[in-house]
Amino acid sequence: MVRAYRPPDFQSALTIMRENRAIPLAGGTDLMVSRRRWSGLSPFFAKPVLFIGHLEEIKRVEIDITNIKIGSACSLASLLEHREIPEVLKIVISQMATPAIRNIGTLGGNICNASPAGDALPVLYAMDASVVLQRKAEIRTLPIEKFITGPGETVLKDDELLTSIIIPKKSYNVGFYRKVGTRQANSLSKLSFQGLARIEEGKISDIRISFGAVAMTVIRSREIEEILIEKSGKEIEKLIPEVSSLYSAVIKPIDDQRSNIRYRKTISLKLLRYFLRTVLISKIG
């Protein structure tokens, strides 16, 4: 038997977390799959389960002048429909799972699950997203790359909930995302690539590049991005080999049942070059 709580509101949820160190369940699309057992038996949970997917306080999207704040329990589908959600995030979400799973799976779940193949992560890293974590006595905010520490690992405390994701408002005029899975629809990533940039007066004023599913966590390097700042198309062309080899040193994929090291690494770098050369430079003109 599994003990489960369905709190009436968010404060009660925090109380239950403090008292029971429960396992939060938002959409359950990761949890119910990983904990499933012989059909007819309830899934395995060593600790009580806390349903949070219905809590209005963490299902809202709030916008102010500088930030977009997304409640952790917002379903992926609801974000696709929301007018204020950045297009670059919608492009990513629209390629996750299936309509049915997106109706119930949440953005918070994808982040807390911390899978190297979690598709929402590269774009969130690129957009400098941070996460708001709350427990009974404390609220803290962390950049997403400080929150996720390894495959399936986060710094979440055992009485803490992720309440929202904060994305700074920025305008990019170049966005490029590629998810490479075995099948176009409903398959997990072998690798993914996210590039975002702002071009002003023929030069790059802002650029963010991230890679998914090719290392323990999402790869994003501000140092390498820095090299490209204020560069013109011609200069970028010259920098491509150097930038490629810098990323090559940090892309460390694995061989597994979905793909292999060589493919993941080669294609990641090819997508990088494609982004720099074909997408960026052609845009700069």
């Binding site: 075995t182 099948r183 176009q184 629809a185 409903n186 398959s187 997990l188 597994d256 049942q257 979905r258």
Partner: peptide
């Protein structure tokens, strides 16, 4: 693939078959 006699793709998450959109 089978590695040391064990099938590596043993779920429909990993053994992907075509769907209607394919």
């Amino acid at each position: 693939n089978s590695k040391d006699g064990k099938i590596l793709q043993d779920s429909i998450t990993d053994y992907i078959i075509p769907c209607s959109m394919y």
